[in-house]
Design a protein around this nucleic acid. Structure first.
Lengths: 246, 246
DNA sequence: TATTATTGTAACATTATGTTACAATAATAA
DNA sequence: TTATTATTGTAACATAATGTTACAATAATA
């Protein structure tokens, strides 16, 4: 447990971590027909940020990213993709971390490792909203979902990082079928279409969408879903990963 | 000049640079119907590597990449794209740099900054082969073009980096029209097609390719090119960047 | 049993891409 | 000068992909 705490983002010293490189994770979820992003709020400061972390001295960077997302969502087997390295000098701004330390009574000097310049590697993660258990660490007041369309002010350049992460998600949507990672195991074609429409920010025509998805031959029909509505019941579909690897 | 030398990759101390983060550049050229990659050979060692460098303490990472490519090619206005961060712990291997230092008489200790673990940000660059003046630095025996299909053994994981860089180039080819950066200002449709075929590693059908390229409305016909061959002379085309921004 | 809203998909229209064919033409050879 | 050759530019058609309209099927409700 002490070991665990020591590996959290806010640990007092940088022992065991590579300095100068950070990971920021744009964790996307989908709920109530809206894209959500998981954000943390630093204790007693109102400072809201992307979940982030550092890379263990002997850790693969992709494993570090996975660890960061796991710690905040409670999930394993996370869909993760690097999308950009944020390395402008202008993003260097030690003030927020100074505030976090001061307010929470952590002594620090200006040459503290967290107050130096960081290069940040951006990852986006796609998770099943219904399966996540957002978990704050000691240094956070909260770890919670926010509507992508109604985001609070974020620390440093994190708003920009979210924007770029969404662009990467859009660019990869057709190519990687990644949208499916955002839904529960079983879903209707309508839900899938709404997800795509939400990610792309535009309406799609239903017949073409359904035909396209079915032509990929990666979905299997599992049952009908009686929604209680006064209309025909939609089928439930499930992603069949084997079929996409032929 | 001293200042300049101090900023080269092989400088003895790491003063002025961010530690732990490096840039590796896959610089593509196109000549004699073949894709070329610019590589450096470390003095007296036979060690061949991608041109690389480090990030100044107050330098933007993208500017550092541009600087690295400029130093080796002599060009300004370089097309550059980040494509991946190589951060596996297993790629950490100080032996090659130890050899470089030992052979060239540079004293070093095992805790020398160049012998620590680095996270490497991969960039690919596209340059006009005919305009480049490959320039080795003091620590290199050579800086020269190699056929992509006939590459020597590269240091560390650089072969892997080249492979991933080529994949990124392929993936972006249609999307970003980046192929045009590899040709001289004026080129024939045949040259453009050969470039695409070389990058994609497959033949394309001529009428479809020509129709597609012309439909983009970013090429203007400038003149005919009399090649001396016993056949109809092809037109020369030129890229019209303005038109692609409408 | 009629009404309503939504689903699944057929049918057709349009666009994009793949393929074949051929006239135009620059150099060479007869 | 005139045929020959190789290559270019593009028309014409074939096929595939995507956009659009239409409508039957069907759960729940009136």
């Amino acid at each position: 447990m002490i070991d665990q705490t020591n590996k959290e983002e806010g640990s007092a010293d940088g022992v065991g971590f590579i300095k100068g490189v950070a990971i920021d994770a744009v964790i996307f979820g989908f709920h109530n027909d809206q894209l959500k992003v998981l954000l943390v709020e630093y204790k007693n400061t109102g400072i809201i940020a992307l979940p982030g972390g550092f890379i263990g001295e002997q850790e693969n960077i992709n494993d570090a990213a996975k660890r960061v997302v796991s710690e905040r969502t409670g999930l394993k087997n996370i869909f993760l993709d690097q999308f950009y390295v944020f390395g402008d000098y202008s993003r260097f701004d030690p003030e927020p971390f100074k505030t976090v330390m001061r307010v929470n009574g952590a002594a620090h000097r200006d040459d503290h490792w967290l107050l130096q310049r960081f290069i940040s590697v951006g990852y986006y993660a796609l998770v099943d909203f219904t399966m996540t258990k957002p978990a704050p660490a000691d240094i956070f007041d909260s770890c919670a979902w926010y509507d992508l369309n109604n985001m609070p002010r974020l620390v440093q350049d994190h708003t920009q990082i979210v924007k770029k992460g969404l662009e990467a998600l859009r660019a990869n949507l057709d190519y990687k079928l990644i949208g499916l990672n955002l839904l529960s195991q079983d879903f209707t074609m309508g839900e899938l279409q709404t997800l795509y429409e939400t990610i792309l920010g535009k309406k799609l025509l239903r017949p073409a969408f359904q035909r396209k998805m079915l032509s990929l031959e990666i979905l299997e029909r599992v049952a009908k879903k009686w929604t209680g509505g006064a209309h025909k019941a939609p089928y439930l579909y499930r992603f069949v990963p084997d079929k996409s690897k032929v």
